Simulated assay, not measured.
Amino acid sequence: MASTSAPPRRPAPSRAEQPARPSQRPRPRRLSGSPGRRTMAAWLTFASFVLPNLALIVAFTYVPLVQNIGFSTLDWPFGSDSATRIGLGNYVEFFTSESGQDVWRRTAIFTAATVGGSMVLGLTLALLLNSKVRGQGFFRATVFAPYVLSGVGVGLVALFVFNPTYGLLAQVMRVLGFASPQWILNPDLSLLMVIIVYVWKNAGYCALVYLAGLQGINQDVLDAAALDGASPARGFFSITLPLLSPTTFFLLVTTLLNSLQAFDLLRTIKPSGDGVNTLIFESYIQVFGGPGRAGYSAAISVVLFVVLLVVTLAQLRFVEKKVHYS
């Protein structure tokens, strides 16, 4: 009977010939301790970063705000050791007096003109700066430069430019055969002067923000509209402007708040405040401009705070509904 031999055993493959195993990903390291301890550690870390900043905000913002509300109910001559509590008398005087009405009127004119002028001029400059021309970096820096200048420095330059005797504008008008207006002495012209200077100073900021918004618009959308026969004006108002609504909303909030709190430029150009006494400037004048009415000034400050709060909430509640984020 023939014996059957076993098949020859194949040699084991060397380590170099063995197929490479897929690399195993390291397992995520689990935090030790119970879930309650991990949650407590996370809250302690959060509190260590937040509480110091929150304490500073409370100490330097909310505590003075509450104290100022208390001061607004006093008839308190500035620097005096005694004061008389009069309740809402300061508020009633501010809202019913002729001087208070004049402050409201000038604040409304200054805010509306500076916000609208800065945004319209900024958008116009952004459209020009968005074109591809040589030296566009230089022109962008030139447009933005006034915004970073000090308000006091800009005010001093404005006093030289608008001086009716030896100012630059007076000399130009004299060459053209016109007499220079009395920008400083006339209250209405003083308000117009500070509006012009403020718009010139802040238009560069609006232009830079609008320029960033224009560069974020997809060019294919504009090209498709042009292929469909849309004119440049129709493309701007129907496509570009709606796509810039988030940028417009941001600028509306920031410029409005900045205009309501504008002080250094107004104080430098017209120290007496006659004609340019907006809410914040009137609050300063009532204390340091002669009357020394600290309680009345505190009441105006509280009114300004309420106006800023209401304007911000109204913009977030109603204006943001018109914004297209996509």
Results as ranks from 00 to 15, higher is better:
residue 168 L to I: 13
residue 152 V to A: 12
residue 181 P to V: 05
residue 148 V to Y: 05
residue 165 T to A: 11
residue 147 Y to Q: 02
residue 156 L to I: 15
residue 176 L to V: 05
residue 166 Y to A: 12
residue 155 G to N: 05
residue 169 L to E: 01
residue 151 G to S: 12
residue 154 V to R: 12
residue 146 P to D: 05
residue 176 L to K: 11
residue 178 F to S: 13
residue 149 L to G: 01
residue 173 M to K: 09
residue 162 F to K: 03
residue 157 V to Y: 03
residue 169 L to K: 08
residue 148 V to K: 02
residue 176 L to T: 08
residue 145 A to M: 14
residue 163 N to C: 07
residue 167 G to Q: 09
residue 147 Y to M: 05
residue 162 F to H: 04
residue 173 M to H: 03
residue 159 L to V: 01
residue 167 G to M: 11
residue 174 R to Y: 10
residue 147 Y to C: 03
residue 179 A to W: 08
residue 149 L to P: 01
residue 156 L to Y: 13
residue 152 V to M: 07
residue 160 F to V: 12
residue 174 R to E: 12
residue 178 F to P: 00
residue 162 F to M: 04
residue 177 G to L: 13
residue 181 P to F: 08
residue 163 N to H: 15
residue 143 V to D: 01
residue 149 L to H: 02
residue 163 N to P: 00
residue 158 A to G: 13
residue 151 G to H: 07
residue 148 V to W: 09
residue 158 A to R: 06
residue 168 L to G: 02
residue 156 L to V: 15
residue 175 V to S: 11
residue 180 S to D: 02
residue 167 G to K: 09
residue 165 T to K: 11
residue 156 L to R: 12
residue 149 L to C: 12
residue 183 W to C: 02
residue 169 L to I: 03
residue 146 P to N: 10
residue 179 A to E: 14
residue 154 V to Q: 05
residue 162 F to N: 01
residue 165 T to S: 14
residue 163 N to F: 07
residue 151 G to I: 06
residue 183 W to K: 02
residue 163 N to G: 06
residue 177 G to A: 11
residue 159 L to Y: 03
residue 154 V to P: 02
residue 156 L to E: 09
residue 181 P to R: 08
residue 148 V to I: 15
residue 170 A to W: 03
residue 145 A to E: 00
residue 158 A to Q: 06
residue 152 V to C: 06
residue 150 S to F: 05
residue 147 Y to F: 15
residue 176 L to A: 15
residue 163 N to E: 01
residue 157 V to I: 15
residue 183 W to F: 15
residue 164 P to L: 08
residue 157 V to T: 09
residue 155 G to F: 11
residue 164 P to E: 06
residue 146 P to R: 13
